[in-house]
């Protein structure tokens, strides 16, 4: 259960990349808070800035402006040497397990590494802990002696989680952590992650594109569009309460297994505008059915409409 202790605070973060003589606006003024023990989902189309945001929070990409604080410490302006020690508080699990492993490093060593680096424990002790962790993520301890190519995608993802957990981070970032896995394995990994987050009482940022899956593992979901959060909503209320036309369009694009085949597909036409040429007004205006003249002039701010529910839209969908 999430507490009301704020663990991560993102305030007005911007990221701009210079591209030749123009500027690519990857993230434009994002603010949110993450509570201890809470999992926040981050969804949106590719190119909307999810991963850029995640990388800034992980500290592997500097912010253009804004602050990110973890447990009250702003680490966006830390010196590299200082940050190296701080970094252990934030761990990541990536999408493609095989490419995030060194092919010549054995699984055991891979899990030991952070413990040896940060806590200076002996190799023997770290290896003992690694075996315990392996069993905890549901793998036999003798996997420690194997190479990554000998494991399946789901098994590797378990190892990646074990490594992230080895040094008790405060914040876990899962960037499409289940995206490359089969549905049956996907559920097991999701359950494993949720179990760890509850047990360790840490914060988690869960990036994904499968709305149904993200909904099932998170307490709240932030829907991103072109570098902005357009809606922040409790996962439980997603279907019934969502008010932003873009969220509705995303929901309309989900094909449920038990769907009614005669239902016509609700199509969101066009493509998102290029982040290189930001127009005036709401970024979603060109694809929006509720667009009015005001939408083409002003950018709607993210405003709380009900407890735990914020929407950035002038004409939210009424119910």
């Amino acid at each position: 259960m999430p507490s009301n202790e704020i663990i991560l605070k993102v305030e007005d973060v911007y990221k701009k990349f210079p591209v030749k003589k123009r500027t690519l606006h990857a993230v434009s003024g994002i603010s949110f808070e993450l509570f201890r023990g809470e999992t926040l989902g981050l969804v949106g189309e590719s190119g909307c800035g999810k991963s850029t945001l995640a990388r800034m929070i992980a500290g592997s990409l500097p912010v253009t402006s804004g602050t990110i604080t973890l447990n009250g410490v702003d680490y966006t302006k830390m010196k590299p040497k200082e940050f190296r020690k701080f970094r252990r508080n934030i761990q990541m699990v990536f999408q493609d397990p095989l490419s995030s492993f060194s092919p010549r490093m054995k699984i055991g060593k891979y899990i030991c590494e952070p413990r040896i680096n940060y806590d200076r424990v002996s190799k023997e002790e770290a290896m003992k802990e690694a075996c315990v962790l392996l069993e905890k993520v549901g793998l036999p301890a003798d996997f420690a002696d194997r190479f990554p190519h000998e494991l399946s995608g789901g098994q590797l993802q378990r190892v990646a989680i074990a490594r992230a957990m080895a040094i008790d981070p405060r914040l876990l970032i899962c960037d499409e952590a289940t995206g490359a896995l089969d549905v049956s394995i996907q559920n097991q990994i999701a359950k494993l992650l949720v179990g760890f987050i509850e047990e360790k009482n840490m914060g988690c940022l869960f990036i994904g594109h499968d709305l149904a899956l993200v909904r099932s593992v998170t307490q709240r979901i932030a829907i991103m569009y072109l570098g902005r959060i357009v809606e922040l909503i409790n996962s439980e209320d997603l279907e019934k309460e969502c008010a932003h036309p873009y969220t509705q369009a995303l929901l309309g694009s989900v094909f449920d297994v038990y769907c009614d085949r005669s239902r016509p597909i609700a199509l969101l036409t066009g493509e998102p505008p290029s982040p290189l040429e930001l127009h005036e007004g709401c970024p979603f205006a060109v694809r929006c059915g509720n667009c009015t003249e005001r939408c083409t002039r002003e950018v709607p701010a993210l405003e709380e409409t009900a407890p735990g529910h914020s929407v950035a839209c002038f004409n939210p969908v009424s119910r």
């Binding site: 259960m1 999992t39 549905v183 049956s184 996907q186 559920n187 999701a190 359950k191 949720v194 987050i197 509850e198 499968d210 709305l211 149904a212 899956l213 909904r215 099932s216 593992v217 998170t218 307490q219 996962s235 439980e236 997603l238 279907e239 929901l251 989900v254 449920d256 297994v257 038990y258």
Partner: peptide, 17 residues
């Protein structure tokens, strides 16, 4: 049955509390 069961569904069960 297991395969269909495993697919996350919009109205389906949630793991997170």
């Amino acid at each position: 049955r297991d395969l269909i069961e495993a697919v996350p569904k919009m109205g389906g069960a949630r793991f997170a509390k």
